[in-house]
Design a protein around this nucleic acid. Sequence first.
DNA 1: TATATTATTAGCAATGATTATCATTAACAA
DNA 2: TTGTTAATGATAATCATTGCTAATAATATA
Lengths: 157, 157
Amino acid sequence: MKNGRCREKHWWHGKFRGCGYRVTVAREAILDVLARTDKHMSAEDIYMKLHPIYPNIGLTTVYRTLDVLSNLALIFKLEIGDGRARYELAESPKKPSHHHHLVCTGCKKVVDYSDFIDQEVKLLQETEKGLSEKYNFKITNHLIQFYGLCSECLPRT
Amino acid sequence: MKNGRCREKHWWHGKFRGCGYRVTVAREAILDVLARTDKHMSAEDIYMKLHPIYPNIGLTTVYRTLDVLSNLALIFKLEIGDGRARYELAESPKKPSHHHHLVCTGCKKVVDYSDFIDQEVKLLQETEKGLSEKYNFKITNHLIQFYGLCSECLPRT
DNA sequence: TATATTATTAGCAATGATTATCATTAACAA
DNA sequence: TTGTTAATGATAATCATTGCTAATAATATA
């Protein structure tokens, strides 16, 4: 059975090579960490998770690798307003492909949701079209996030 | 005729006092700068604008004041993803009361839009209600932003 | 109006996430 | 196996923002 731990070829190897990137231990390890969690981890979270197993992978490499993986669209960078970026795998069997985020401003936990996503996407498309024309923008991206307190943080306020 | 320059009492004086804040030159000057622009300015933008007139207002004070004004909900803090927060007056005759933002990733210009806002608000309310119940969150806020290139930045790519 | 109280401020140092530098190491094509 | 060159790790640098502290100014009170 396949898993992310062994060094056999994964589908993304082609994507790496096709873009002139090499397949390295650090890159596989970081992808692997993100593939094994449903959390939204910061660079340092990933570094800490990796360190016991790969003590020679530095924080700088984690940042650089996350940047590469972002550029390859293998992962998404997510800013939740606390000045520390989080990352999540772009495609995952665990999560719906198109989703938005619900962020707890207490513990910074992020929940993926895809409820109402069809209506959201529909409205987004209309809005995007309208805005493009009216303001003469080439729109490339959007961001929808809800902020609040989760059930664990709420009692603590 | 009233304007923001003279030191006569403004409606927000009550809000200041009611919350135990004092009305100071720096606070009025910063509110005034934000009231006179439709741009979305960073702390340093505001500092630079203020400096020729009030050379004794320091950058630290600008940050602190923006924080106070944010807490009083007189202004909104706006993060556009470049690590530098922008600020805008919460209520202004110049801009629609409820609006979202269209951000140019080239020059970081921010356009307020309120097109489609009614549908957006309606959907947001439904989504918020649904998410609150399903995930047991107390939702306090939301963020909708579109990103793209404005007509000036597009040709430069 | 003069004075006491205490919030506010300026200047500077410190923080903390992220990025640049550069000598060394490792992928991988041949 | 080896040469080329991308990738790495350690450290220093950056940059927006915040902490600190003595000095100042806004307001309450006499």
